[in-house]
Design a protein around this nucleic acid. Structure first.
Lengths: 254, 254
DNA sequence: CGGTGTGAAAACCTTCACAGCG
DNA sequence: CGCTGTGAAGGTTTTCACACCG
């Protein structure tokens, strides 16, 4: 994280711990679903279950935002949606550019999740002249040559890199030079950026490797259990904490 | 994660901390690059720089695996590649199924990173009959009806879910019932699974929201700085820790 | 001498458990 | 009475700093 896992050396982001920030989007999603079903209030227990965390953690997380609950009752859904949105900076809309319109870039461009919550695909950029002008998800692809102008004209501060690993650092440098200060990197490379620029990476092969580690461990345990005792039947015990923070997941070779 | 972040309540996975496991793939990638350039040995300082972490952390991480370095010299690249691969379970190959062959599923299927490191796309599965039989990335798509048979025939224990959010839990239940014990979830939903099943999630909109939070904070600080004092020039200070472990990042609406 | 390996300290995050408010 | 909000305890992760070895 993901990630994870996550970000600058330390951070006193107006006091909200990084681990809490990473969970706010989760709460927001669960709250949005409740809001759509017109549920007026929710308890920490219910909301925690919907978000896949435990209720003590959720209450602690919310305590960093302020006292938005009512004792004996719970939280007002609409009000919390607003407070979390504001905290995450989603009350404004963020223009985003996607660089690298291959399979993955196209998938991202077509992805509906942007529009819904504060993000807008301002431009698609690719180095292949054959793509230039072709519409993907209704947006014409522009050529890398114009990257700086596109960033500046649209006031973009968030960039998504979906290029091959070899091109990522170079693209990153140009994005940063043009004024981008937050980068979501899908290329399997460590990007080096100046202070003050945030990078989050999404890396498919890392996630798979972490799964393989645990899978292997399970196989070992199973063998040991078989040799020694009664195999335990799997009972549905709701979930196992999901996601890296983190740490971290994305797309390309190791 | 996305990290983040990550996995079971605790874990004494033969003693290796979860945070360390999440970084092993990073080290492995950096080592593989060195290996390709025929570099024989590397110091913790150099390798840490290549992986984007600090050297104390790296040495501590490696200390959980054993004493694989040579004092005064560093680590033997080939040897470390082997040890980490073994630890991660990458010396065997893992058949993987991808369920949901939309834009994202197709991108994943076409992604070269599988083959290279221990993973093999055993099958592509989609609920749309119009897709059945059509090759994607050279592999014919099979229908959801045959999911159980496909899992069993191929001995699949790792599944990737790239369906819309609404279908994810149902697909997950079927994968688990058929014997899958590790799931990489790209759908923006919290999956509920029995004990003993690992889930990692990759969620694009969560990652973007975390970036937006920091972006907003920067804007606020900037304004404060402008009002109060000399704006600091950005000097290239290599990187800011990347990625949620976990945490982890993925694809669909909030 | 140079760089690993590691105890010990510090920082951070999660969980417990309960006081206190509506 | 029920549920939030939170100090305090417990656990994990990171960082420090240095002993030790090749």
């Amino acid at each position: 994280m993901a990630t994870g896992r996550t970000h600058r050396p330390a951070t006193r982001s107006r006091g909200i711990p990084e681990a809490t920030v990473a969970r706010l989007p989760l709460y927001l999603r669960a709250l949005t679903a409740l809001s759509e079903r017109s549920v007026p209030t929710v308890s920490s227990e219910e909301l925690a279950a919907a978000a896949g965390v435990n209720s003590a953690k959720l209450r602690k997380d919310f305590s960093y935002l302020g006292s938005y609950g009512t004792r004996g009752v719970g939280y007002d859904v609409e009000y919390l949606v607003y407070q979390i949105s504001r905290e995450l900076g989603l009350t404004q809309d963020w223009p985003v550019v996607i660089v690298g319109i291959g399979n993955l870039g196209a998938a991202l461009a077509n992805y509906g999740g942007f529009a819904s919550r504060g993000f807008r695909v301002a431009a698609l950029i690719d180095a292949d002249p054959a793509l230039t002008g072709k519409p993907v998800a209704g947006i014409p692809v522009q050529h890398t040559d114009d990257l700086e102008k596109i960033i500046q004209d649209n006031g973009v501060s968030i960039g998504v890199i979906a290029t091959p690993a070899g091109a990522a650092q170079q693209v990153c440098d140009r994005l940063v030079a043009a004024g981008v200060t937050s980068i979501l990197n899908f290329a399997p490379t460590v990007l080096s950026v100046p202070d003050g620029v945030d990078v989050r990476k999404v890396d498919l092969s890392i996630e798979l490797q972490i799964l393989a580690f645990h899978e292997q461990r399970k196989a070992g345990e199973e063998a040991a259990a078989e040799a020694a005792a009664v195999p335990a039947a799997a009972t549905r015990g709701d979930s196992a904490d999901q996601g890296p923070d983190g740490d971290v997941p994305a797309v390309m070779p190791a």
